[in-house]
Amino acid sequence: MKGIITHIQRYSIHDGPGIRTVVFFKGCPLSCLWCCNPETQSFEPELEFIQSLCTRCGRCVAVCPENAVNPELNCPENEKIVRQYCTLCGRCVIACPTTALRIVGEEKTVKQVLDEVLRDKAFYRRSGGGVTLSGGEPLAQPEFAINLIKACHDCNLHTAIETSGLVSLIHLQQIFKYTDLFLFDIKYIERSKHIQWTGVSNEIILTNLRWLIEQNANVVLRVPLVPGYTTDESNLHDLAKLVRELKIKEIDLMPFHQLGRDKYHHFGKPYQLGELMDMRVSNEGKQILNQVMSVFENCGAKIVIGG
């Protein structure tokens, strides 16, 4: 059985305790406006073009059988590939003398992923780290995710999963016994805004969260702070209320950063938040962060900025 993975990142230090390896799954049931890994939304492999590595040699144009490569060598980055013609045959990738063109999303077996993950065993042991499934939504490939996390668990690894929460309860129940830590994303409490900005409703997400809490699962809430969207007063208070009610022990506040912007261009996807401030840089962003923190001050949970 195989899963489709975009990347396996070793020495990850912001995705759970200790030194970890993060396995990024491709495919997600949400399509959040602020997603910083847009290449993980679709379940299919995609072609990435990185203009900063392009030498303008034009070989990609020459070899493409579908005329899917823009012959204008200096065209904008997000117009390089004519997506509706591209069949992902990969000829341009082979022809490219650098790594400016590559296909993101590769099929891997559980064993292949596990072998890679096990390489850093000594580091996990020493630092209390392990493996984190992320993406995308790991449980959108439920069979693969469950088998993978069970295999890791059977090797005595500490396991964590970063999840959107929009998963079927059955799968959550199956994975639960092999998962040491849930990094659970909550974007917005009020339903209609949630649909507007993520494309889906949040009832199932909230139900799943409550189920996990009832089972005494180890849950860390992850809140993306997107100015003008998730950071309005009412949402913050709703979240704080939820945290108090469920006695959540830790929340990670993830300040919005613009590092994902380039990836939209690489994959020819429209990006709506291109003008939004990077919270970590702008003074206004820091003020917002302070306001947010004051709302969560007495909610009973440990607050971590950035994860």
């Binding site: 990347h7 990142q9 990850s12 230090i13 912001h14 995705d15 993060v22 990024f24 910083c36 890994n37 990185i50 203009q51 900063s52 590595l53 980055e77 992320s134 970063e162 990670d252 993830m254 950063h257 613009q258 590092l259 994902g260 912007r261 380039d262 990836k263 261009h265 990077d278 970590r280 840089v281 820091k286 950035g306 994860g307």
Partner: peptide
């Protein structure tokens, strides 16, 4: 560039993004 839930090589980012990272360094 290591930020939670995200991964990229600095040299593969656009000039603009690289400049913003530099700006961030300078500030905070």
């Amino acid at each position: 560039v290591r930020v939670g839930g995200y991964s990229a090589l600095f040299v593969e980012l656009s000039r603009e993004t690289q400049d913003s990272i530099i700006a961030r360094h300078e500030q905070s």
